[in-house]
Amino acid sequence: MSEETSKPLRRQLAAVALAGGLMTGAAAAEPLGPLTIARQGSFFVGGRSVASDTLSTLPAYAPSGTIAVDQVYVRYQVPVEAKRPPVVLIHGCCLTGKTWETTPDGRMGWDEFFVRAGFPTYVIDQAGRGRSAVDPSAINAVKTGKAAPETLPPVVSAGQEPAWAIFRFGPKYPEVFPGMQFPLEAQGEFWKQMVADWAATLPTPNPTVPALSELAKTLDGAILISHSQSGIYPFQTAALDRAGIRGLVAIEPAACPDPAKDDMAPYRDLPILMLWGDYVELAPRWAPRLKLCRAFVEAANKAGGKAELVLLADVGLKGNSHMLMQDRNSLDVAAWLTAWLDAHVPPRKP
């Protein structure tokens, strides 16, 4: 995008930010006034009950009983006189809904930004993560000798050193990309957000997918905004059932639908945005994924879709890491995204 072409877009970004009661740039670190909401709360979607006789190995707790698993925790805030569609924020690997909350260095998170901008905002913990329960039965079955050790579930924790390159703070630990926007002075707080990831132990499709479908229908229309590992989930949700889905935003998705294998029909006439940060072509893990997502956008649009792939550097937002919702310019990115949503997923007429 040329400098001349990008000027109207930047003016639109600034106008959207001001309309939402926020400033762009460095001044965006603090809100201009109190946060006023109509209501807030939490609930679960999805889930099923399972009976097990290996729920506990502690004498004080019975080993047999019924538990709920595969449910998805949802926290929400609804602004007064909400003027934009609901958004659902879906975190990635080894993280929880904390991804979207206050940044590691204490600035406003996207959950608050979108509420201030007039979006009812729903933040989830994926199935098997955070406040969404895991099933301990397989572990306890091995501990009590009822199952072989090789049946233990494959649980993953991401080490800080390898995660450094995955999150594109730099090419390898502890090197830093020049101009990179993530607040590394607060990296200690960021690493505390990392949790064990049970995704590989869950059914296929991941239970988060049908739960997102249920949530979108409950909200009578929502924009699904995913990140990284969860990037594919909104596409899988649309393939399962388009009902309730008003738009998809995949932020640096770990996978996109494969035009060589997947049906493009579910994405016809659906506003879709793939949003990418900086240094992607320098990252062996991410460059092939960007290439596949570009192929998806081309195939989806040939099938009647409304898909778009945007590199933030091409619209004047440079230096973004994989954790672009926590970077120093995160509210500028959120304001740009709000402008895109207004242009492609306008509010319903009363």
Score class of each variant (00 low, 15 high):
residue 96 T to F: 06
residue 96 T to N: 06
residue 97 G to K: 01
residue 97 G to D: 08
residue 97 G to N: 08
residue 98 K to A: 13
residue 99 T to S: 09
residue 99 T to V: 11
residue 101 E to M: 12
residue 102 T to A: 05
residue 102 T to F: 04
residue 105 D to G: 10
residue 110 W to Q: 01
residue 111 D to A: 14
residue 112 E to P: 00
residue 112 E to H: 00
residue 112 E to R: 04
residue 115 V to L: 04
residue 117 A to Q: 00
residue 117 A to V: 01
residue 120 P to I: 04
residue 121 T to H: 15
residue 122 Y to I: 06
residue 124 I to E: 06
residue 124 I to D: 06
residue 125 D to R: 07
residue 125 D to S: 09
residue 125 D to V: 11
residue 126 Q to V: 02
residue 129 R to P: 01
residue 130 G to W: 01
residue 131 R to M: 11
residue 131 R to A: 12
residue 132 S to Y: 07
residue 132 S to G: 05
residue 133 A to P: 15
residue 134 V to K: 09
residue 135 D to W: 03
residue 137 S to G: 08
residue 140 N to T: 12
residue 140 N to P: 12
residue 142 V to M: 13
residue 144 T to W: 00
residue 145 G to E: 11
residue 148 A to I: 12
residue 153 P to R: 12
residue 154 P to F: 03
residue 156 V to I: 15
residue 160 Q to E: 15
residue 160 Q to L: 08
residue 161 E to M: 04
residue 161 E to K: 13
residue 162 P to F: 09
residue 164 W to Q: 13
residue 167 F to D: 11
residue 168 R to A: 03
residue 169 F to R: 05
residue 171 P to A: 13
residue 171 P to Y: 06
residue 171 P to Q: 10
residue 173 Y to V: 02
residue 173 Y to E: 02
residue 175 E to V: 09
residue 176 V to H: 01
residue 178 P to E: 15
residue 178 P to T: 10
residue 181 Q to T: 08
residue 183 P to G: 00
residue 184 L to Q: 09
residue 184 L to C: 10
residue 184 L to T: 10
residue 185 E to C: 00
residue 187 Q to Y: 12
residue 188 G to I: 11
residue 190 F to K: 02
residue 196 A to G: 12
residue 199 A to T: 15
residue 199 A to S: 15
residue 200 A to Y: 04
residue 201 T to E: 14
residue 201 T to H: 08
residue 205 P to G: 12
residue 206 N to T: 07
residue 208 T to H: 13
residue 209 V to I: 14
residue 211 A to T: 02
residue 212 L to G: 02
residue 212 L to H: 03
residue 212 L to A: 03
residue 213 S to T: 08
residue 213 S to N: 04
residue 213 S to Q: 03
residue 213 S to V: 07
residue 213 S to D: 01
residue 214 E to D: 02
residue 215 L to A: 08
residue 215 L to I: 10
residue 217 K to D: 02
residue 218 T to Q: 15
residue 222 A to F: 04
residue 222 A to C: 07
